[in-house]
Amino acid sequence: MPWNRPLIIGLLVVLLALTWWRLQPEDEEIRRSQLMMGTVVEIMAGGQGFDKLDAAVDAAFAEMARLDKLLSSHNPDSDVSRLSQSDHGGDVAAATAEVIALGLEVAQRSDGAFDLTLGRLKSLWGFDQETPTVPNRDALATALAGIGPEALSLEGQQVNKRAPQLQVDLGGIAKGYAVDRAIAVLKQYGVTSAAVNAGGDMYLLGQRSRRAKHPERFWRIGLQHPRQKDAVLETVQVRDRAVVTSGDYERFFEQDGIRYHHIFDPQSGLPARGCQSVTIIADSVALGDALATAVFVLGPQAGLLLLTQYPQAEGLIVATDGSLHTSPGWAAYQVTP
């Protein structure tokens, strides 16, 4: 064979490869936001077929709206409101029972650092109102009476209250559960790449889809620095994982030079003081939500001890003094600078 033939064939191959690379269809990506559950919920879905993605995102939002009606303490007809108003409890929807079951499990394993019965305490502080205030000691004692991991019990879909005055509050876990359900709906529609983000509590399904000049890759999530507003503490990369952060910087007020935030220690009724922020990477957002709160309340040492009971979860804790504490598996998610 004349020597020039391989040269020509080689050039042809290069040309074909370049054409193939350039003409490969890019994934479509839909990004939509709605105000619900007291926050901005954003859903991104990527892949082929705009109509399919659009229908999937619609259905995911509808599922979250359905759960908001069941689990919100602001809706007087919700399961949560009915439980709070009743003396002894009552039957709830399967979804509500599932949320309560997970919440009670974390409450027990964390010795009450996570608590589903802080409704009266949260109302007392008034973080949902325009002017939150520091309650007096007697009011705190009254609001904490009867709470704890044993305050609620669950038999099937029947919830029992230990004391009539208990006010159920699923705020620390309901949003995460709704995100998990939205992801389940997206999967049912065949979506393989998506992110559902409810005010920073998020689940990342599959990989970030292929876009212009950027190949498919793991999702990269920046973690808010707790003391520098426009700074990122670090970046993690994940797929098929929930990322949840609880921090003392999100909702707080200052009185007499003291900063009061919205994550309460159920033992004292006061804002927990062991951490600035906690980020959990877990296999579900609901679990991540509950663990982030529990670890925040427990502080770095006890918090890391709690995480050893959950092999499907890893955590990054910023302690009150700014020091960083991580669970053993955290490093696997860190993006190497």
């Binding site: 992110a195 983000n197 005010g199 920073g200 509590d201 998020m202 990342l204 970030r208 950027h214 999702w219 990269r220 999530i221 920046g222 973690l223 808010q224 990122v232 970046t235 990322v243 949840v244 952060t245 921090g247 999100e250 980020t279």
Partner: peptide, 10 residues
């Protein structure tokens, strides 16, 4: 350049 991250957890 791509943004350093896709979403911010806060």
């Amino acid at each position: 350049e791509e943004a350093p991250y896709d979403l911010l957890s806060r």
